[in-house]
């Protein structure tokens, strides 16, 4: 990732150099163009003089030269246009790469942090921070499924009271359906969305392959976006996948720790 950053910086530098050269080149061309125009004017004037004198052959040669210069001028203008177009392409590409780089960095940080701990509470805290900072959500909840009862309940939330988030039965309403289908839901129009605790603006299943363990339900975004970009959907899906494996791993770990201490307790009892 750091190499990539350095690479990008290098590319940005190259682009800036190319842009600078392009600008210098354009300046030179314009100067050359100015000189040629001036020369043309001179020639036209002298031609006018010659015409009076009626030197036919010389006039012909001068007219050809003018034609040539006109052609040269046109070529120069075409080249300037081409350089300008290229500069614009470079600038656009630079912005695209910059955005891609930011997204990759965000994804890297998210997965790095999510898998940096086996503590369930810490995992939840990291998921909250990622949703706030990377997605820019202001109100959301994280709901996990109790496989025995088939009921989803909130384990963490931001901008909402946990008591205000009712448990949801598997398959019931938008949240329950998302859990059942394993497909993310995004409201068509974020701007006109009205908050409804049972119908979030965004509902993303937390999945390990096809196994859904919970949902992320978003009700309000911090940075007002008019609509989601393609990359937002990818980010949601990837984060949901990483969040799910991190939660799953932390739960397995705490379960095995508990079992281990129970077994240890029995062994202690038996060997006393």
């Amino acid at each position: 990732m750091i190499e990539e950053e350095t690479g990008l910086r290098g590319r940005a530098e190259e682009f800036l150099q190319a842009f600078k050269k392009g600008t210098e080149f354009t300046h030179d061309l314009l100067k050359e163009n100015e000189r040629l125009r001036f020369r043309l004017l001179e020639m036209e004037n002298s031609l006018a003089g010659h015409a009076v004198q009626g030197d036919g052959e010389q006039n012909h040669a001068l007219l050809n030269r003018i034609k040539e210069l006109e052609q040269e001028k046109q070529d120069i203008l075409n080249r300037i246009q081409k350089v300008e177009d290229e500069n614009q392409d470079f600038a656009n590409r630079y912005i695209e790469i910059e955005a891609e780089n930011n997204n990759l960095a965000n994804l890297y940080i998210a997965s790095y942090q999510l898998h940096s701990t086996l503590d369930f509470r810490e995992v939840l805290q990291i998921i909250m921070e990622i949703v706030i900072n990377l997605i820019g959500a202001e109100e959301f909840s994280l709901m996990l499924l109790d496989e025995k009862t088939g009921v989803l309940s909130a384990v963490a939330c931001e901008g909402l009271d946990r008591e205000d988030i009712p448990p949801v039965k598997l398959g019931s309403g938008l949240i329950g359906q998302t859990l059942l289908s394993g497909e993310s839901y995004f409201a068509d129009d974020i701007e006109t969305y009205n908050r409804d605790i049972l119908s979030p603006m965004v509902c993303v299943p937390l999945k390990i392959k096809e196994h859904v363990i919970g949902v992320l339900a978003i009700y309000k975004l911090l940075v007002q976006k008019e609509r989601f970009a393609q990359v937002d959907y990818e980010l949601f899906t990837l984060l949901a996948g990483h969040a799910a494996t991190a939660i799953f791993g932390a739960r397995l770990y705490s379960d095995s720790e508990r079992r281990l201490s129970t077994i240890q307790g029995f062994i202690d009892l038996l060997t006393k």
Partner: peptide
Amino acid sequence: SPTMRQLISFALKRIR
């Protein structure tokens, strides 16, 4: 928060 530290650190690493 390690997440915040890493996010800020990543942004700052753009500075030569």
